[in-house]
Amino acid sequence: MARSARPLIAALLALLAAVSLVWMVQGIGGGNRSFILQLRGTKLAGLVLVGAAVGTATVLFQTVAANRVLTPSIMGFDALYVLLQTALVAGLGMAGFAGLPAGAKFLAEVAAMSVLSAALFGTLLGRGARDIPRTILTGVILGVLFRSLSTFLARVMDPNAFAVVQSVSVASFGSIDAALLPMAGLIMAACLGVAMRLSARLDVLALGRDAALSLGLPFDRLVLATLGLVGMLVAVSTALVGPVAFFGLLVAGLAHRLSPSSRHEVLLPVAGLIGALFLVAGQTLFERLMGQTGTLSVVVEFAGGLFFLFLLLKGRIR
């Protein structure tokens, strides 16, 4: 790791540890401590995982797309995951897919998501990535299409149970699916490991297609692999809390601003740590100090949306 980045990473880690400590012990009463600690610990792990997944996924995606204003969620990745979930239940429902243990089911979904993202977004970015506004618009509309298809499938499957899809179409940091945590953690660790191994090649990828090819990088294969990773990371965060559209934009923007180096071996951990820090600190603030469990997702999206509008008006998106 680049030496110049050590102080930043150490500082982010220390901050995260401090905030996590506040989260764990703040206002803890005398009764049933172990239960409360376990509950809070689960939530903390979820928040850290989601924050890190969104942060690293956005950095990876922006490198592939050669653009700093796109995020996987703006491009419809999370809607694709929701559609995939619904479609798997609809298609394999008879074969007992829905009855599989949560971890195994999740693993299957993540694998499918990785292949699908690489195929779909590889095609899209390969064809029209020069025209960024059109690419964004395509992503947004794809998102609408995927969401509508999910609702449609759910309605056709079971006309009375469409609420299932609606519940995963709004982000909620307050309720994290604990059953998925171990598997999500494993996938997350694997993805990060692969991303860090690829980091030197990602630095070359960031130079653009022509430069990367002339330096002998297997450009197209690396793009597909990276998109596959992004797909898995989005699956992790969406499965745990639901879709978050603009949060990644804030995190990646901040990571690029704070990081002393634009090398991915620094960028990726910095983005992951910033994402985790944001969510843990935000949830501590809103849930503990202000007593509002559901507010964080709205505030994060609101701030991210305004930031995006700001970039748009400043002429940074073109």
């Binding site: 506004p133 947004v140 949306g305 509008l309 748009l312 998106i317």
Partner: peptide, 16 residues
Amino acid sequence: MLVPIAGLILSGIVGG
């Protein structure tokens, strides 16, 4: 293409 994007973001923010 920026015009529809701005509109969609605005819809998202107000909807939020």
